[in-house]
Computed example of a mutant assay.
Amino acid sequence: MGADPADEAPPGFVLPLLLFAGFRAFIDEVHAELARQGHPDLRPAHGFALQAVGGAGVTAGELGRRLGVSKQAAGKTVDRLAGLGYVERVDDPADARRKHVRLTARGHDVLARSAAVMESLRARWADALGEGRLRDLERGLRTVVPGDHFRLDASNWFGA
């Protein structure tokens, strides 16, 4: 009897496609739930930008560096997020000639909601895969992903 074809390793291109499909499914579910919770205009690229703004806020130039985009592109992102009510521009406390971008109450709200939704989705994945298998997957990915694996410039990398 021959080996079961299902036991053979798939071609190398399958792994990144599965990882991306899992990422996409996870993020799509996050955004669908955020839309139901009152944030229908938020897009995945906005999530990266809101994370890059963070709790302390940033200048547009620093936001651009964190996202891997030009200061002008960061400014457009800030304009969009400000228009949606997630960030605001205020005088920079260190230099009144510069503007500082910080999260609004709505920005803090959506980050808190997205964290809760992600916890819920992780729990669903743990139910589907088993907690041990999911932890093994997370540990394995930490082993092979470079130390700067939480780069926020992913939307720029995809050409968004």
Rank of each mutant, 00 (worst) to 15 (best):
H46P: 01
R142P: 03
A32K: 13
T59N: 04
F26M: 03
S70V: 10
R113F: 02
A123K: 11
L34W: 00
P10W: 10
D95I: 11
D79K: 15
T104V: 12
L50P: 00
L18A: 12
F48S: 04
A115P: 01
P5V: 09
P5R: 11
T104H: 05
D95F: 11
R89M: 04
G64M: 03
F48H: 08
R122P: 01
G61F: 06
S70Q: 07
H100Y: 11
A49R: 01
L134W: 05
A74C: 07
R106S: 15
D91E: 12
D92Y: 04
R65S: 05
E88G: 02
L18S: 08
L137D: 08
Q37A: 07
L129W: 15
A60L: 08
A25W: 06
T59R: 04
P5Y: 10
D95G: 12
R142D: 15
L17Q: 09
V144H: 15
V14G: 07
P93A: 10
E29N: 09
D79Y: 11
L141S: 11
R98D: 10
D92T: 05
Q37G: 04
A32F: 04
R106E: 15
D4F: 10
A112C: 11
M118A: 13
R135M: 13
F20Y: 12
P44D: 07
A45S: 11
G64C: 06
H31S: 03
R65H: 09
R43A: 08
V110S: 00
A32G: 09
L103G: 00
R142Y: 13
L15S: 14
L19T: 10
L103R: 01
F20S: 08
R24H: 11
G38P: 04
G130C: 10
L141M: 15
H108L: 13
D41Y: 12
R142F: 12
M118K: 12
V101G: 00
G132R: 13
G47H: 01
L42S: 00
R66T: 04
A126I: 02
V53I: 10
T59M: 03
L81Y: 02
T59L: 02
A96Q: 14
